[in-house]
Simulated scan of single mutants.
Amino acid sequence: MILEIITPDKNVFNGEVSVVTLPGKNGEFQILKDHAPLVSTLAKGNLTYDQGGKSETLLVDGGVIEVSNNKVLVLAEAVLDAEA
């Protein structure tokens, strides 16, 4: 599936991933291939995705996610280093 992460300043990531783990307002949740359509708000927390067997983590400062037709669109308020 395709993951696209966008902030008001820039496009942070656009690529093929196998799984995305997100910080929801009511707790962490995962998106896998063929997930049902979804729109949800995000809390501040770690967004993790697996790409080619390698896991990457970003710290997002809230936002919105839309899932449709194996595309995950994350509109984040800001993306910081995961260690921040």
Results as ranks from 00 to 15, higher is better:
residue 5 I to Y: 00
residue 66 E to A: 14
residue 49 Y to E: 03
residue 41 T to N: 11
residue 22 L to W: 00
residue 10 K to N: 03
residue 11 N to T: 13
residue 84 A to S: 14
residue 41 T to C: 04
residue 65 I to D: 03
residue 43 A to Q: 11
residue 10 K to C: 03
residue 77 E to D: 11
residue 81 D to V: 02
residue 22 L to H: 01
residue 75 L to T: 06
residue 56 E to M: 09
residue 9 D to H: 13
residue 83 E to G: 07
residue 78 A to Q: 10
residue 64 V to F: 14
residue 64 V to N: 07
residue 23 P to T: 12
residue 25 K to A: 10
residue 7 T to Y: 00
residue 28 E to L: 12
residue 49 Y to P: 00
residue 48 T to M: 06
residue 7 T to R: 01
residue 81 D to W: 06
residue 16 E to C: 11
residue 51 Q to M: 14
residue 64 V to D: 08
residue 73 L to A: 14
residue 34 D to F: 05
residue 73 L to D: 00
residue 53 G to D: 06
residue 82 A to R: 15
residue 73 L to E: 03
residue 25 K to M: 07
residue 15 G to C: 05
residue 20 V to S: 10
residue 60 V to G: 12
residue 5 I to M: 04
residue 17 V to L: 10
residue 33 K to A: 13
residue 3 L to W: 01
residue 45 G to E: 15
residue 47 L to Q: 08
residue 30 Q to M: 10
residue 83 E to P: 00
residue 78 A to K: 12
residue 34 D to M: 13
residue 54 K to N: 03
residue 19 V to R: 14
residue 18 S to L: 06
residue 53 G to T: 07
residue 50 D to T: 15
residue 39 V to Q: 09
residue 38 L to D: 11
residue 43 A to I: 08
residue 57 T to A: 13
residue 14 N to M: 12
residue 53 G to M: 02
residue 59 L to K: 15
residue 57 T to E: 06
residue 53 G to E: 08
residue 67 V to I: 08
residue 24 G to T: 03
residue 66 E to H: 09
residue 19 V to G: 05
residue 19 V to A: 03
residue 33 K to Y: 06
residue 65 I to H: 09
residue 21 T to W: 08
residue 77 E to N: 14
residue 84 A to C: 04
residue 82 A to G: 09
residue 8 P to H: 06
residue 32 L to I: 12
residue 63 G to K: 04
residue 3 L to T: 03
residue 61 D to P: 02
residue 39 V to C: 01
residue 37 P to L: 13
residue 39 V to H: 05
residue 13 F to W: 08
residue 84 A to P: 00
residue 12 V to G: 05
residue 41 T to H: 07
residue 11 N to V: 13
residue 72 V to E: 05
residue 36 A to G: 01
residue 13 F to K: 05
residue 23 P to R: 12
residue 44 K to C: 11
residue 82 A to V: 15
residue 2 I to A: 00
residue 69 N to D: 15
residue 59 L to S: 14
residue 7 T to H: 02
residue 65 I to Q: 07
residue 46 N to F: 14
residue 80 L to N: 13
residue 26 N to L: 05
residue 46 N to I: 13
residue 26 N to W: 02
residue 66 E to N: 11
residue 17 V to W: 03
residue 70 N to A: 10
residue 60 V to Y: 00
residue 30 Q to A: 15
residue 72 V to Y: 02
residue 81 D to H: 02
residue 51 Q to A: 15
residue 42 L to K: 02
residue 10 K to P: 06
residue 24 G to Y: 05
